[in-house]
Amino acid sequence: MLKRFLFPTNPNGVFISVILLVVRIVFGILMMNHGIDKWANYQELSTVFPDPLGIGSPLSLGLAIFGELACSMAFIIGFLYRLAMIPMIFTMCVAFFIVHGNDPFAVKELAFVYLVVFVLMYIIGPGKFAVDRWISQSLSRK
């Protein structure tokens, strides 16, 4: 058991898929909390939210909420996984490089952590326990 844990030979195995599922759940819920907070305070935030893309504060806030809330839900269950991750990665890129671009690293560290995790999860994929896998399997049977 310890040997298999330390030196996994099957990267597509159940154990790795369980770890990927746990990462999706943990980081998805953490990101959702940011989106829920923005959504709950939309009225107050819509006038002061940063507008790094020049599209207006309300629309910038709406896109951030979409990336942090709606896409996090899809990320957690593994539905349209890589497509859902694009807004999440984009939102963290904007937060890290533009909104907090000149801030000390301690201020933008959280955006960086999310960005690294999301990029790695994008590359690795959702694992076996994802809605996309079940859809793919049912489509391949037909």
Rank of each mutant, 00 (worst) to 15 (best):
V23P: 00
I29Y: 06
V117N: 10
N33S: 03
L45S: 11
F5W: 13
I25T: 09
L45V: 11
F97C: 09
D37T: 14
V119C: 12
A64V: 09
R24H: 12
L110G: 01
A70H: 00
A130D: 00
G54K: 05
S60T: 13
H100C: 02
Q137I: 07
M32R: 03
P11T: 02
E109T: 06
P52D: 13
P52A: 11
F7A: 12
K108T: 03
I124C: 09
F96L: 09
I86P: 06
I124Q: 13
K3T: 15
V117M: 12
V113H: 05
K108Y: 05
I123S: 10
I76S: 13
S57T: 08
L21A: 15
M92G: 11
V94W: 06
F79S: 06
P104V: 10
K128P: 00
I135V: 13
I98G: 00
P52N: 13
S57F: 09
W134N: 06
W39M: 15
F118V: 07
G54Q: 04
R4A: 15
I123F: 13
I65G: 02
L59G: 03
V117R: 05
E68D: 12
A130Q: 00
I65C: 03
R4G: 00
M88K: 01
G56R: 07
F97W: 14
V18A: 10
G101Y: 07
K108I: 02
V22M: 15
F49H: 10
S57L: 07
S138E: 06
Q43W: 01
G54W: 04
M32C: 12
G13P: 04
G56K: 02
A64S: 15
G78D: 05
I89L: 10
L110S: 03
L120I: 05
A74T: 03
V26F: 14
Q137Y: 06
Q43A: 14
I86A: 15
G67A: 15
K108V: 02
A106R: 10
L21D: 11
I124M: 14
V26D: 02
V116W: 06
V18T: 10
A84C: 07
S140W: 01
D132C: 10
G35A: 09
P50G: 08
L120E: 02
L69I: 02
A95K: 10
L20F: 08
I98F: 12
I16T: 15
G35F: 11
A95E: 09
V107F: 01
G28I: 07
V113F: 11
L115N: 03
F49V: 06
M73K: 00
S60I: 08
P58N: 05
G125P: 09
V116R: 01
S60L: 07
K38C: 04
I135R: 08
I76Y: 14
F90K: 00
S57D: 05
F118D: 08
D37E: 15
P58I: 07
V99Q: 12
P50H: 09
V18R: 06
K3Q: 15
A95T: 13
P52W: 13
